[in-house]
Amino acid sequence: MQNHSLIRRSMTAAALTLAFVAVPPSQAVASQSNEPAMQASDNQTVPDKAADAWITTKVKTELGTTKGVTATDINVTTNDGVVTLTGNVESSMEKNHAVRIARQIKGVKSVDASGLAVGPARHDDSH
């Protein structure tokens, strides 16, 4: 009787082990079949979004620490490595400088500064 119990436990353990080993490949197949649908709704993966967030932060930091650029008047967004600069700068020289700074950041594919207007800054200096 004790021998039957030992065999039954061994068989149960083997079945459970086999079930746990078989589950990950089936989950991998299921996740691969859903992957195109997920990408269709959102073309960026989590690492891509993280890279874009890092690029945006790095560009803002560089603009904020560079003389001759009023970083508080420049908005920075990044999508798939493309940096978009919007806002106001005081001169075309400042605009070109901001674009140069953004292009130097690792991971930047291109810079769109079409939304960066040259004219008086919007911030209020009167206190």
Rank of each mutant, 00 (worst) to 15 (best):
S33Q: 05
T61R: 13
K49S: 04
Q32T: 02
T65D: 06
V89Y: 04
L6E: 09
A53C: 00
S114Q: 08
F20N: 04
S91A: 06
D112M: 12
D48E: 13
T70P: 09
T12R: 07
A15P: 01
L116Y: 00
T84R: 14
D80S: 13
H123P: 03
V69N: 05
V83I: 13
A13R: 11
A30Q: 15
D124H: 05
T61V: 14
D48F: 12
M93T: 11
E90T: 14
N88R: 12
S114M: 02
V23L: 15
T66D: 07
A14V: 00
T77Q: 10
H127R: 01
S91D: 03
S31T: 11
G87A: 02
A50C: 04
H127W: 03
D80A: 13
V29R: 13
S126K: 08
N3V: 07
K95L: 10
A22C: 01
A19R: 06
P47L: 06
Q32V: 02
D80H: 10
E62H: 10
T66M: 01
N43A: 09
V118N: 08
V89M: 01
F20A: 01
R122V: 04
I7V: 00
V89P: 07
V82P: 00
T70D: 14
L85R: 07
G87I: 02
N34D: 06
V108K: 12
V111P: 00
D48G: 11
A50G: 03
A30K: 14
S5P: 08
D52E: 05
L6T: 02
W54Y: 12
Q2F: 13
D42R: 10
Q2R: 09
T72H: 13
S41K: 11
D73M: 00
M38D: 09
V82E: 08
G119R: 01
Q27V: 13
A37T: 07
M1I: 11
P24L: 05
E94K: 09
D52M: 03
P120Y: 15
H97M: 08
R9I: 01
A53I: 05
K106E: 14
A37C: 08
G115H: 04
D125H: 08
N96T: 13
T78R: 02
A22T: 06
I55S: 05
V111M: 05
T84S: 15
N96W: 09
V76I: 08
V111W: 01
K58Y: 12
L6K: 11
K58S: 09
N96V: 07
D125Y: 08
A13T: 06
E62N: 11
S26T: 12
S26W: 06
Q39T: 02
V82Y: 03
A37V: 02
V21H: 10
M11A: 15
A28E: 12
N96Y: 10
N88V: 10
K49W: 07
P47F: 05
H127Y: 00
S10D: 02
V46T: 04
V99N: 10
H123K: 11
G115F: 07
M93D: 14
K109R: 15
